[in-house]
């Protein structure tokens, strides 16, 4: 395909991604360095759009000039917002480091700082849910694959539901069930003979609830991918292993698992990306008193009566840096594959 043809084919999607992903990215970076907000890039775009739309050239330029004057660029504050108490909190962390005697004390005191609190839950959630999803999905795939043909389709249908359903809706459904008056909540109370037991009351139980929700929501994805992979396991290798006297368990470990390992990498990549943005279950389970995530604090800043855009933008930038660090291994691997000689 010629460069020129490629350009025209690709232009619409590139334009959409440039205007609504790349430009907002630069805009949040600039927002995070200014207070209360900076409209530099957008003002420029604003001008262009006004020019195109209205074609009343002089009038518009005058207007834009006036609006620029009446709404001066936000004050440049550099990395001040990044280091304040609601974000990286350098001062507070330094003080904790000085005053706390043990390392565990230090880590638990970080819990009082909103950003580190959110970071703690986000990372725990991501790195607990992802392996559990892979393990659970693999077991379901093995079990369903050994069923009768007619049962398989039926199982796939019901297995898709937790994944397909809107995260907020799915978490609300479970939230009502674990309510002290709901079926699971009251069942647990009877099981442990403790009428005051509530899954929402303590931080530990809330975290466990959210993680269980995460596994429930994502295991179907891993299941479907592994299930598709199981259909392509070479039968000759299995038979050869059987003849060599491998037990069923050994066959699974030494033949099936290596065959599925590229799929594990794929599922892990998608799951890391998706779990890192955990947000809806915290809203659905009304869990913000015990667990917050990076996405949730952005939401909380924007949702305030006075929208804290600079603060939200700063957290956004930090989150994006986190995503890039998370993706680094994949990016490096792809880079190596693409430049094998270097």
């Amino acid at each position: 395909m010629k460069h020129k043809t490629f350009f025209w084919f690709f232009l619409p999607t590139a334009l959409a991604m440039f205007l609504f992903i790349a430009l907002p990215l630069t805009s949040i970076v600039s927002q995070s360095l200014h207070t209360p907000h900076d409209a530099g890039i957008w003002l420029l775009l604003n001008r262009v759009i006004h020019l195109v739309v209205n074609l009343k050239l002089l009038l518009i330029i005058r207007q834009v000039k006036k609006s620029t004057k009446s709404k001066p660029q936000g004050k440049w504050v550099g990395f001040q917002i990044y280091t304040d108490r609601n974000h990286l909190a350098f001062k507070e962390v330094g003080e904790f480091w000085e005053s706390k005697t043990s390392f565990i004390d230090f880590v638990s005191s970080l819990n009082d700082l909103p950003f580190y609190r959110a970071m703690g839950f986000t990372l725990t959630y991501t790195f607990v849910v992802t392996p559990l999803v892979i393990l659970f999905g693999f077991i379901i795939a093995l079990a369903v694959n050994s069923l009768h043909r007619h049962l398989k389709g039926f199982m796939v249908f019901f297995s898709l539901l937790p994944m397909i359903v809107t995260p907020l809706v799915g978490s609300l459904i479970l939230f009502w069930m674990i309510d002290a008056r709901g079926i699971i909540g009251s069942g647990l109370q009877e099981l442990f003979a403790d009428p005051t037991l509530s899954l929402k009351a303590s931080t530990g139980l809330t975290w466990i609830t959210l993680i269980v929700y995460g596994v429930w929501h994502s295991a179907p994805f891993a299941f479907i991918v592994f299930y598709a992979g199981l259909q392509t396991v070479p039968q000759e290798t299995i038979e050869a292993a059987m003849i060599d006297g491998a037990t069923r368990f050994q066959q699974t470990i030494h033949v099936i698992v290596p065959h599925l390992s590229p799929l594990v990498a794929f599922v892990a990549l998608i799951q890391l990306m998706d779990n890192f943005r955990v947000f809806e279950p915290i809203v659905g389970f009304s869990a913000s008193a015990h667990a917050t995530s990076l996405s949730w604090i952005i939401w909380n800043d924007i949702g305030q009566e006075i929208r804290l855009l600079s603060s939200a933008a700063t957290t956004s930038v930090l989150t994006i840096i986190g995503v890039i660090i998370l993706l680094m291994p994949v990016l490096i691997r792809t880079w190596r594959e693409f430049n094998p000689e270097k």
Binding site: F20, I28, L309, T334
Partner: peptide, 29 residues
């Protein structure tokens, strides 16, 4: 190839991180 990699990075961004970038211009317009 690079366009695909950029798309992958965009795919990994949580959508909510972009929202604070939208609000101001959308109010202005």
């Amino acid at each position: 190839f690079w366009l695909l990699i950029i798309a992958l990075v965009f795919r990994a961004l949580p959508p909510i991180t972009l929202v604070s970038g939208y609000l101001q211009p959308f109010y202005d317009w």
